[in-house]
Nucleic acid binder design. Structure first.
Lengths: 213, 213
DNA sequence: TGTACATCAGTGAACGCGCGTTCACTGATGTAC
DNA sequence: TGTACATCAGTGAACGCGCGTTCACTGATGTAC
């Protein structure tokens, strides 16, 4: 399948592709899924999109810029998924928090290509501001959720939000990248990774002294 | 610097390198450190070792086999470091457990090249049995340490060892790969990653009901 | 101890290939008037 | 509405390069007797 055919029937492309940017991203994701984050070339992405090898230069400075865009959009999709799982903490923060954790794992499982572009592509994300801020926005969903859980606690016992958010992130990310990811680097374990995460979060909450109402 | 000079003075190499396997691994690590796990080629490793591009084929079937050997040896070094930090739980399991966590982070910080070869190279480790078992041996250090902590608890309250070991692994690995790693993919946080891990483990222990004696 | 021989671990030349990048170009689209 | 023109987003040919891999080879090492 070549991407330029992925259009409305009848809306045939002519000299101009019309949607090359998106087509390159789709192609890159497909190639990453097949061969890992290092396994695609600029030229190959162009070929998959059905354009000449020079065409991508109209949209991206080089391969890394394309990779960074893939990762940025990955973070945006990730943020959206997390936000819709959290759903502003409805019906209660604990139920919503569990959904949030499952959404993290689910993303790693269903979108291993985006996941590895986001976390394992080796991009120095300090040099791609858009990537950096997209990552921050996704993290903020998690941090706000932690703040909501903390708000259920008596003031005297509340832990720092940032600490808790980093703990939960590390835990979720560890489980996602070791046990839940949907590619060959996944380590099989004798239980669903969701259960593993739920149990860890419950124990951590107990340690914090969080009490479900 | 080229590796073939890295020998005893006077022990000049002739036609035979003498230590090509090790030289290739050193070269691969150096290149991985510079350009990430995808950033080295078989030919480049040969050049760095000072041999012809055909020579590596005497030792490795292909680039992936070399990569797998790098990762295997990484796991061996990792296992040794963890075991020597754990030190059979002396003087007590809690002190030793804290050392163990710090050793995990320290490895990620000091050996980012090995770390990424081990965890982010994209090798399907099911197809490299030696890699698989080296990874298991490293994990076993962690699992034994968890068992020792659990053994301090009253029998009725003991959690499953495997669950605890996976929790601790995921937590340590999440913090190591997000915040402690010694390369460009590290995310800066406003506290030492050791403190972050220590706090998380303490809270998790509290949740389990572990009491320091 | 000496010699013949097998095996091992390299050489270096060669090949075809795909990549990244550039260039002058051209077809399509949008806009000013 | 029509036309001239600027701009945009592609083409396709070309380049030099490094890679992976093969091949027949050869120097060095180890061993049998």
């Amino acid at each position: 399948m070549s991407w330029e055919r992925d259009q409305q029937p009848g809306a045939r492309r002519g000299y101009h592709h019309g949607n090359l940017r998106e087509a390159l991203i789709k192609a890159a994701l497909k190639l990453i899924a097949e061969k890992g984050p290092s396994g695609f070339s600029f030229a190959e992405a162009a070929r998959a999109a059905g354009v000449s090898p020079a065409a991508p230069y109209r949209h991206y400075r080089d391969r890394d810029a394309l990779m960074a865009d893939v990762a940025s959009r990955g973070f945006e999709a990730f943020e959206a998924k997390l936000a819709s799982a959290w759903k502003d903490g409805a019906p209660d923060p604990f139920t919503a928090f569990e959904r949030l954790g499952r959404a993290y794992l689910d993303f790693a499982r269903r979108e291993p290509a985006q996941f590895s572009a986001m976390f394992e592509s080796g991009l120095a994300f300090t040099s791609f501001p858009e990537l950096h801020s997209a990552g921050d926005r996704a993290f903020n969903v998690l941090r706000d959720a932690c703040a909501a859980v903390i708000a259920t606690m008596p003031e005297a016992k509340r832990p720092p939000v940032m600490m808790m958010a980093l703990h939960i992130w590390a835990l979720s990310h560890g489980i996602a990248s070791l046990f839940a990811r949907g590619d060959g680097a996944r380590r099989p374990i004798p239980m669903p990774s969701e259960d593993l995460l739920d149990a860890a979060v419950l124990l951590y909450f107990d340690g914090l002294g969080v009490r479900k109402s």
